[in-house]
Computed example of a mutant assay.
Amino acid sequence: MIDARLTLPRRSLLRMGAGLCAATALGGTAAQADEAAAPVAVGDPKLSLKGRTIAISVAGTDHFFDLKAYQAQVETVKELGGTPIGLDAGRSDKALVSQLQTLVTQKPDAVIQTLGTLTVVDPWLKKLRQAGIPVFSVDLPSTNVINTATSDNFSLGSQLALQLVSDIGGKGNVVVFNGFAGVPVCEIRYTQLKTVLKYYPEVKILEPELRDVIPNTVQDAYAQITALLSKYPEKGSIAAIWSAWDIPQLGATQALVAAGRDDIRTYGVDGTPEVLALVKDPKAPAGAVAAQQPGVIGRTAVLNLARYLNGDTSLPSQTFLPAIIANKANAAEVQKQLGQV
């Protein structure tokens, strides 16, 4: 279990957003981003969680996105006068099921589930719903939740794929990490990659695709790419490496640096500080990363929950928050916008 006293450091947030309404593109206005990041008026009765206990269940917090989204949820519940209960499954499906099972009997006022394999958690989200407990989620769209706060993975997936295609000149072999098809957001990003590549027939995905793992993701990706480079030693034989999140990208980039392969670029999603720093480095082979706003996403989930508990039944099934493609040209500015410098 996570100590619910954890708080999210106040940082300047990405000034490209869609506020708390649905967004369908990576762009937006500064005013909308300010709306999403604005402090909550604790005394606002429309958003009060006073006297409410909110369970915040998360698949794990070892990853930058997951931790920041979780911390933002904890902080926002407390700002609204509620009591957050933090539950960290530590990347264990068994532990995740156990903590959701416990919540069915404990009956908090509401539950927010952050990530997880849908086939594993969805039966328990349904049981929570049947028990009369409102369920919200972060990055886990499900028919058993009232609202999911998430990045617009359709847009960021296609935009990242287009960045990759542009960087490699529309031709070449691409290595793909594809180990989490059961996680909806990863599946969406992969599907968008495949959709874009359909229109660039000279770009080929190398088979077999690689499998990313948890834990030891960086070390495993490093080892897999090192082995693959031995199989494809000629420069130009591989053009790019893609992953649905950016921890495999980190290991892959380190492997390329160690092997002196400056002919290959890596691509991923999240905007983990170490990866974004590599994208900014003109000498590093990290080509681009789709930087998400985990703090804004986590905060939005709680604000939507508060609206619902205070009588607002007009929420959409999903609230999309935009990401921004950070590349060699703009990574330094994205770091500033995300408060990573």
Rank of each mutant, 00 (worst) to 15 (best):
M1A: 11
D3T: 15
L8M: 13
L14R: 02
R15S: 13
M16L: 13
C21Y: 03
A23T: 08
A23D: 06
T24S: 11
A25K: 06
G28D: 04
T29Q: 09
A30L: 15
A33N: 03
A38S: 11
A38H: 04
P39G: 11
V40A: 11
V40L: 14
P45Q: 15
K46T: 12
L47A: 09
K50C: 04
T53M: 07
I54C: 03
A55R: 01
D62L: 14
F64H: 13
Y70V: 15
Y70T: 15
V74A: 14
V74K: 03
E75S: 15
V77N: 11
E79P: 03
E79Y: 04
L80T: 06
L87H: 02
D88C: 13
D88Q: 04
A89T: 05
S98R: 09
Q99V: 14
V111E: 01
Q113F: 00
L115S: 11
T119F: 08
T119P: 02
V120N: 05
V121G: 04
P123R: 05
L125V: 08
L128P: 06
Q130A: 14
Q130C: 06
G132M: 13
I133M: 03
I133S: 04
I146M: 02
S151V: 02
N153Q: 09
S155Q: 11
G157L: 02
Q159A: 14
D167T: 15
G170I: 02
K171W: 01
N173F: 04
F177R: 03
N178W: 10
V183N: 01
V183W: 00
V185S: 00
Y190M: 09
Q192H: 10
L193V: 09
L197M: 13
K204F: 05
I205D: 09
E209G: 13
E209H: 08
R211Y: 12
R211I: 14
I214A: 09
P215T: 11
V218S: 13
Q219L: 15
Q224K: 15
L228T: 14
L229G: 07
Y232K: 12
Y232P: 00
E234Q: 14
I238V: 15
A240E: 02
W242Q: 03
A244R: 05
L250D: 05
L250I: 07
G251P: 05
Q254K: 14
V257K: 13
D262W: 07
I264K: 10
R265F: 08
T266M: 10
G268Q: 03
D270V: 04
L276T: 10
A277W: 05
L278K: 14
V279K: 06
K280P: 03
P282T: 10
Q292D: 06
G295R: 03
G295M: 05
I297L: 03
I297Y: 00
A301I: 04
V302W: 00
N304G: 08
Y308P: 06
D312P: 11
T313R: 14
T313I: 06
S317D: 12
Q318N: 11
A323I: 07
N327P: 00
A329I: 10
A331I: 07
E333R: 10
V334P: 01
Q335E: 13
K336D: 12
Q337D: 08
G339Y: 01
